[in-house]
Amino acid sequence: MSDEKLSLEVVAPEKMVMTKTVDMVTISGTEGDFGVLPGHAALVSSIRPGFLEIEVDKQSETMFIGGGFIEVIEDRVSILASEVLSSEQINISECEEKISKYTIDLGASETDADKDIIQKSIDKYQAMIEFKNSN
């Protein structure tokens, strides 16, 4: 690995989650998972609910991200996340409850726009469970 590093910034609506110097960032983009190494081309991408993995000195750390955006400019990575959770903060039975509740809502909703929003919430909680299980 080269000496070059990425400076990473993760922000959620309520607060700055972290600022760190890292070796590599892997994240779940809407068009598929991808990794960012130093020297990456300038990029703006949206993120689907999924994971964020950062690697510092061969140590890796993963957390759940509830969707958002990522911007990469000249080795500066900014992640705008709607939600950031660690594995311990996720409770599977709670997620399952939410999913079953939203599934009922989905049947009751009428407009496509409503259905879209509810479906997105379901996807988010499913991604949460998936994340929890894989860690």
Binding site: E31, A41, L43, V44, S45, S46, F69
Partner: peptide
């Protein structure tokens, strides 16, 4: 400076923007 940078977009520009705009409004 940003005029000099050609961003890559994933998915395309329009889709990101139509995602980003409502978000920006909320924020």
């Amino acid at each position: 400076k940003d005029n000099l940078i050609n961003f890559e977009f994933e998915p395309d520009e329009k889709e990101i923007l139509s995602d980003l705009l409502p978000k920006n409004l909320t924020i």
